[in-house]
Design a protein around this nucleic acid. Sequence first.
DNA 1: AGTTAAATCTGGTATAGACCAGATATACAA
DNA 2: TTGTATATCTGGTCTATACCAGATTTAACT
Lengths: 244, 244
Amino acid sequence: MTSNSPTTDRNGNHYRHLEQHFRYLIHQKALQPGDKLPSEREIGEQFRLTRITVRQALQTLEAQGLIYRQNRRGWFVSPPAVAYNPAQRKSFIEYVSKQGLFPHTELISQEIISADQQLAAQMQTQKGTPLLKLHRRRSIEGRPVLIEHMILNVDLLSGIEKEDLSQSLTRMLPKFGQTYHAMDLTFKSTALPNSAAADLGIATGLPGLQIERINYNEAGEILEIDYEYWRHDAVIIQVGIHGQ
Amino acid sequence: MTSNSPTTDRNGNHYRHLEQHFRYLIHQKALQPGDKLPSEREIGEQFRLTRITVRQALQTLEAQGLIYRQNRRGWFVSPPAVAYNPAQRKSFIEYVSKQGLFPHTELISQEIISADQQLAAQMQTQKGTPLLKLHRRRSIEGRPVLIEHMILNVDLLSGIEKEDLSQSLTRMLPKFGQTYHAMDLTFKSTALPNSAAADLGIATGLPGLQIERINYNEAGEILEIDYEYWRHDAVIIQVGIHGQ
DNA sequence: AGTTAAATCTGGTATAGACCAGATATACAA
DNA sequence: TTGTATATCTGGTCTATACCAGATTTAACT
């Protein structure tokens, strides 16, 4: 065991060479964020490797967040990860653009429903409460990085469904006399579910970061519950915990 | 060849069948945490699939946290993930055993060093301050799940190097007149670095969860900085953020 | 019983070739 | 110019086979 082997291993490990090759090009900025890599077949030809071996190298780089793929379009160099600090209550647009990156939000669907038993329990409200379900996709530097499923309590935010819901909700809330006061967060590193992967245009089963967020107003009522599915390489989460 | 895909999708997708097969067995508890799966070759024979296809299915299940592998030993069903709430300041041993799981800590190495320029800056202390470097491995249900690299300020915790450092530091601190008061946390989903993967006995390049934690005492001095590398499927992080 | 060496099993890595379907570019017709 | 059909390129999935090295078990030898 231990197998220190710095650069080159005794046995095959061709894919590690390939991995280091591209890592080097990316670090040297010969390949820049957004740039397209040669096709798997071309790489294989150039290095005299099978596509399977090439793919293994590319998948390893993908797991490290250096590159990503778009279904049947090719492999691309990843933009830097954005830092997300949920405690600061800044909007997506704010904290992304503040880091010199270009954010974009699309509203995929919106729907007003009436809370059934289960949803009412989740939202800690009464059965029959009107709820707004939102489904959004957010991008950084033109790359979809995040799928959001949100459920909002319309009783506390009446009329919100008439707003432009591809805008920042954080900035919209004061209009309705509400603010985010506290939140419960759950993070989980897991494979993206099929639907989220499809919305992000990536293959199912790739690692992702799942965030569940329950937002409370000052009265301790649940304003909104969010389920976010992030590309694993697109975000770093920073939180400060202070004395109790 | 197109294979009359019975239950699932359009084209081949044999590996999805296999994936669902094992997911079913695990959910039905026909396969329980810690159980060993048949070897890749056996599975391939049983389902008349190539090892490559079998491996793809297993790797997908691995990404979902359902199974894990041990190098050249086989594939096993994962124990449930442990919930970790950094705000509660409970020790690893506490929160793991409270969830009905069996924790274990090994001290891999310990070392007293003198802070150089860079370390002093990180620890917000003076050059030359004595620091204790710890390297530990923590397991749940006998499975290594977490590698810790810690740096402690011995000026604030003098004599700590004589303690049994495979024990909980959280419980040890009051002895030295210190408590954890605030912390800054950074989470990142990324491939495990080689050394951490080796310590965990898993292949390099697999997804992991990286946590950086800076611990402050009541005076706002840095007591300790931790770098944790978790198996991605071993933990769920829960944090509450309260009004400011 | 205790130690050691050899056979076997397992995942890790690799070659060679194939067909599919979505994405893209190109040529052609209206 | 605009729309459409088509050829091409790309990653997604798969078969068949092979050798390697670490982990485990078995057999042989003290």
